[in-house]
Design a protein around this nucleic acid. Structure first.
Lengths: 214, 214
DNA sequence: CGTTTATCTAGAACAAGTTTCACTATCGGA
DNA sequence: TCCGATAGTGAAACTTGTTCTAGATAAACG
């Protein structure tokens, strides 16, 4: 894992944009078939009609490629969610509902999910910017689901971060067969209760305010 | 990633036990030096005075090896924590304190932490049993820190699961340089408040409700 | 247009995880 | 103690991610 070459100049020509699409498409297709291991760089190159060297110019490593694939998929999901926002009343349930919806979408392509999530957590520092983009996308989805009026408070951001942690990790335990779907649901619902807490705390004052010592 | 050969018969002879130790030791040493990538199977074999084939008989893949290494380290940490249990009063703070202590221990060997955690989250189904063992160990540590009287309620177990999720995921974001130590601390403290929630929900007033005061 | 430069291609080469094979050493039981 | 089964050794082979090289193409620009 060395990887540094820049992802091609910032302004892509039309042909280049098309190549990029073909690559991402091939990547997702192979991933859907057999997960992380089935995404083989030579095959991605071949399936997208591009030389191996070119593939590496666009995505400097397999992990980069799969994280980019995840960005792509998340973007789609974000749009889909925007079109049909959650129906629930309570922010807590809205978030839980949204995440479970996303989860069911992943369930439909478990191998693809496997490839993307494994890449995401396996990514080292050289992929940080890309992983960060994914993280921001996820955060945006959750914040959307919360349906806040104003900007989120720091407490709410913390809660969202923790929800995200739980989301990723729960996904992994499910993908590796160590947790059932029901279990994931419970975990999601459990962590979402943190939102209630921040809501309550945000309006705290009177009640049991003074906690947390030394 | 194929890996299946069983980890040698259940009853190890003395020499075998020694081999196993040497291997784990070499693994940890190499990991401490350069993280996941620095643990090269050929080198582990050489450094522990064992043939490559033998190494693979003991640990059917690099990930198996590193997860086993993590088991080992966790065991040590569990013992260390038993000897000096957390000093705080509140279960919530006790857990947070314990996890931050563990976290600081990992900070001392960031490369080793990197190797172990990356292996853990990268592990596929073939490593599930081993990963599960690690998970149980972690759960035990957290439950210990909570210092419960009786057996944990289902809600409490859910909270612990979520704390564990957060712990792993926060660790990853720190290891890949996307979150600061302070950030991790906040996340841990945030998720630990779930414990308050279960306590409040689980405890019907009277009995052990002498918390709030102080 | 013609030239200069960045991109792309084909394919070889390299690195590290994993497997295989032909032997040898060790161990547990008759 | 001797023997068959099991475990260990050493080295080569295989797989797949990654890098490198030389030549063909396409783009940018005067």
């Amino acid at each position: 894992m060395t990887a540094e070459a820049k992802p091609a100049s910032l302004q892509l020509t039309e042909r280049q944009e098309a190549r990029r699409r073909r690559i991402l498409h091939a990547s997702a297709r192979l991933a859907s078939r057999g997960g992380f291991d089935a995404v083989q760089m030579r095959e991605v190159a071949e399936n997208s009609g591009v030389a191996l060297g070119t593939l590496y110019r666009y995505f400097p490593s397999k992990v980069h490629l799969l994280v980019a694939t995840m960005q792509d998929q998340l973007q789609h999901m974000h749009e889909a969610l925007r079109k049909r926002p959650p129906t629930e009343e309570e922010p807590t349930t809205r978030v839980a509902q949204t995440l479970m919806r996303a989860f069911r979408a992943l369930q439909r392509e478990p191998h693809l999910a496997d490839a993307m999530v494994r890449a995401l957590t396996f990514a080292d520092r050289s992929v940080s910017p890309e992983v960060d983009t994914v993280s921001r996308l996820t955060t945006a989805i959750i914040l959307d689901a919360m349906g806040l009026d104003g900007p989120p408070t720091p407490e709410q951001l913390s809660a969202v971060r923790v929800i995200e942690h739980t989301w990723h990790s729960a996904l992994i335990t499910w993908l590796s067969g160590r947790a059932s779907i029901a279990q994931v649901k419970i975990d999601i619902e459990t962590v979402c209760r943190l939102i209630d807490l921040t809501a309550r705390d945000g309006a705290r004052e009177g009640a049991d305010g003074a906690r947390e010592g030394r």
